[in-house]
Simulated assay, not measured.
Amino acid sequence: MAQVEDDHESPASPLAALIARAAELGGGAAPVDKWDPPDCGAIPMRIAADGAWHYNGTPILRERLVRLFASILRREADGGFVLVTPVEKVSIEVEDAPFQAVELAQDGEGEDAILTVRTNVGDVVAVGPDHPIHTVRAEHDGFVPYVRVRGGLDARFTRAAALELADLAHETPDGGLAVASGGTVFPLGAPR
């Protein structure tokens, strides 16, 4: 076990590199689950299916601003999405998942492997029971994987990250695909 921990510290480790990039970019979330401000209605903000944020139909191009908004995003019990501060909350539209899983690192192999994902907004999560992977079958794309990031918020794997995930998959007895991480096996899709 000590060897694995030492590998995380090595600058050459893919996991260390992934965490370093996330730290450079910032990320993380405010304690939005502890705040219960009044609802101030909806604003014309939308997160497109490709992860791009828009306000009033105009793309938000400042990455730090997107990360700020992402840090105060919360999913409500009814499935809606809100930006929340201690004094107000506003509803926004999310076309698919609010985040994109843009990078993947594997530490270890087989069922002992740990898959770590970095999102487009700087979150880094280790796939496991608290951050499970689930998939949706898409008509033209095969399977579309998602990972739970925090508080009911998911990240959709980009095409490149999904292909990396597929490369790490093993075949299941029924002919489907699955990946293991954190001692849990996550099915990626059933055979066609």
Score class of each variant (00 low, 15 high):
His134Trp: 13
Gly142Phe: 07
Asp141Ser: 14
Gly142Ala: 04
Val125Lys: 14
Val124Gly: 03
Pro129Ile: 12
Gly122Leu: 00
Val121Ala: 09
Gly128Ile: 02
Ala113Tyr: 04
Arg118Val: 02
Ala126Glu: 15
Thr135Asp: 03
Thr116Leu: 10
Arg137Ser: 09
Asp130Tyr: 06
Arg137Val: 11
Val136Tyr: 06
Arg118Ser: 10
Asp141Met: 13
Ala126Asn: 15
Thr135Glu: 02
Thr119Ser: 09
Gly122Ile: 04
Gly128Arg: 01
Gly128His: 00
His140Tyr: 12
His134Asp: 15
Thr116Met: 11
Gly122His: 00
Val117Lys: 01
Glu139Trp: 01
Ala113Asn: 09
Pro145Phe: 09
Phe143Gln: 07
Val136Cys: 07
Thr116Asp: 03
Asp123Thr: 00
Pro129Trp: 07
Gly128Gln: 04
Ile114Lys: 04
Val125Trp: 13
Arg137Met: 03
Val136Trp: 02
Ile114Cys: 05
Gly142His: 10
Ile133Asp: 05
Thr135Arg: 01
Thr135Asn: 07
Pro132Gln: 06
Gly142Ile: 06
Pro145Ile: 06
Gly128Thr: 02
Val144Pro: 03
Val124Met: 10
Val127Thr: 07
Phe143Ser: 09
His140Trp: 11
Asp141Arg: 15
Val124Arg: 05
Asp130His: 08
His131Gln: 01
Thr119Glu: 01
Val144Asn: 07
His131Leu: 00
Gly128Val: 00
Ala126Gln: 15
Ala126Ile: 10
Asp123Cys: 00
Asp112Asn: 14
Ala126Asp: 14
Ile133Leu: 13
Leu115Met: 12
Val144Tyr: 03
Pro132Gly: 06
Glu139Gln: 08
Ile133Pro: 08
Thr116Glu: 08
Arg118Ile: 01
Val117Asn: 03
Val125Gly: 05
His140Glu: 12
Arg118Glu: 07
Ala113Lys: 09
Asp123Ser: 15
Asn120Arg: 06
Arg137Leu: 08
Pro129Val: 11
Val125Ala: 15
Glu139Phe: 11
Phe143Glu: 11
Arg137Phe: 04
Gly128Pro: 01
Ile114Phe: 11
His140Gln: 13
Ile114Arg: 14
Asp112Gln: 13
Thr135Ser: 11
Ile114Met: 13
Ile133Asn: 06
Val117Thr: 02
His131Glu: 00
Asp130Asn: 07
Val121Asp: 04
Ile114Glu: 08
Val124Leu: 13
Asp130Phe: 02
Arg137Pro: 03
Pro145Ser: 11
Ala138Val: 11
Thr135Leu: 03
Thr119Phe: 04
Leu115Tyr: 08
Ala126Val: 11
Gly122Arg: 03
Pro129Gly: 11
Gly122Cys: 03
Arg137Thr: 08
Pro145Lys: 10
Arg118Ala: 13
Val117Trp: 02
Phe143Cys: 05
Gly142Asp: 09
Phe143Met: 10
Gly142Gln: 08
Asn120Met: 02
Asn120Ser: 14
Thr119Val: 00
Val124Ala: 15
Val124Phe: 07
Gly142Tyr: 13
Arg137Trp: 04
Asp130Leu: 13
Ile114His: 09
Pro132Met: 02
Gly128Cys: 06
Arg137Tyr: 03
Ala126Pro: 12
Gly142Trp: 10
Gly142Leu: 08
Ala138Asn: 14
Val124Ile: 14
Phe143Lys: 05
Ile133Ser: 06
Glu139Val: 06
